[in-house]
Computed example of a mutant assay.
Amino acid sequence: MDRFEQIRAFTQVVAFAGFAAASREMGLSRSAVNKLVIALENDLGVQLLHRSTRVVTPTETGLAFYAQCLEILASLEEAERSLTQLQEEPRGRLRVNAPMSFGTLHLAPALANFLIHYPDLQLQLTLSDRFIDPIEEGFDITIRIAAPQTVASLIVHPLAPAPRVLCATSTYLSTHGSPTHPNDLHAHSCLHYGQLAVENQWTLLGPDGTHTISVAGALCSNNGEVLRDAAVRGLGIALLPRFIIEAELQQGTLQVVLPDYHPPELTLSVIYPVNRHLSTKVRLLVSFLQERFGQNTG
């Protein structure tokens, strides 16, 4: 039998000086309340109440136990109240992982505004371009730019497309020629994301179908900003997300190459563990990211 219900029944009987009023307060029958108190007395091996046909009063032991029970119930109520406040008022640590370039260029400034609104939060932002499983590595939220995916243990919440384009400086193109077809990229220095030891391929979709081109160039890197800066210096053609190069495109420092061809679409997504009781701080951050970045990645 539930010990908490036994204690609650006992304290109600003492508080209302009888089983009838206590049963009405608890929404139980009089016999049910009586059974709870008897079970408590049997479990403890002591008599807690003096019973008569007209009045119910606590024994000396029962009175001392009643005072202790009130403290226990008050502590439990305070614990429940604190938990409710924790759910309602975001506080404590929030661990977030995001891609390097998106994190430095866009996410970090946005999170500063988020923290201004929720000063009781302590946010730990870790930047990494490798895939992070938030469950295995202890993150509340991860943000990824990748092809749409489904993972059984994770919620993948798409925010917006993350389009990529080929780009180069006008100086590079005037010197080396502007490609008019993906096959022309074989003759160009292609600044690619990855490692030198691995063959790198770009897949481009266009009016004449899909083309997969092996590329090589003066530089490869696992960081988009490094590739952007190399492209700006005229070292070759880069394939980059627009959110990294939007300013350079607007200023004319870089220009789009092969505008009729584009790589497969990537999506900016928020990823977090499947949890029926999503914490307030995670829910608020997901909502904030949706409002800030939804359909707005360049």
Score class of each variant (00 low, 15 high):
residue 75 S to H: 09
residue 61 T to H: 09
residue 220 C to Q: 10
residue 254 L to E: 04
residue 57 T to I: 11
residue 160 A to G: 11
residue 21 A to E: 15
residue 31 S to Q: 14
residue 250 Q to A: 15
residue 289 L to M: 05
residue 78 E to M: 09
residue 167 C to S: 13
residue 99 P to F: 02
residue 38 I to W: 08
residue 164 R to W: 05
residue 202 W to A: 13
residue 93 R to G: 03
residue 275 N to L: 12
residue 269 S to D: 04
residue 34 N to M: 11
residue 127 L to E: 02
residue 72 I to G: 01
residue 9 A to K: 04
residue 122 Q to H: 14
residue 189 S to H: 07
residue 127 L to D: 02
residue 41 E to G: 06
residue 175 T to P: 00
residue 234 G to D: 02
residue 186 H to N: 11
residue 247 A to R: 15
residue 15 A to L: 11
residue 298 G to V: 05
residue 183 N to Y: 14
residue 222 N to H: 10
residue 60 E to H: 14
residue 165 V to K: 10
residue 41 E to I: 07
residue 165 V to Q: 07
residue 171 T to G: 08
residue 63 L to N: 14
residue 75 S to N: 12
residue 115 L to Y: 01
residue 66 Y to N: 06
residue 34 N to W: 15
residue 87 Q to V: 01
residue 40 L to C: 07
residue 78 E to K: 13
residue 131 F to R: 12
residue 211 H to V: 03
residue 103 G to Y: 06
residue 170 S to Q: 15
residue 226 V to I: 13
residue 256 V to P: 05
residue 1 M to H: 12
residue 34 N to T: 10
residue 254 L to Q: 03
residue 13 V to K: 02
residue 63 L to W: 13
residue 233 R to M: 09
residue 287 S to C: 05
residue 130 R to G: 03
residue 167 C to W: 06
residue 124 Q to Y: 14
residue 160 A to V: 01
residue 62 G to P: 06
residue 133 D to R: 01
residue 111 L to W: 01
residue 123 L to Q: 01
residue 116 I to F: 08
residue 252 G to H: 09
residue 44 L to R: 08
residue 266 L to P: 01
residue 126 T to N: 12
residue 90 P to H: 04
residue 34 N to R: 15
residue 32 A to N: 07
residue 227 L to T: 02
residue 146 A to M: 07
residue 191 L to N: 04
residue 270 V to T: 11
residue 191 L to Y: 01
residue 128 S to Y: 09
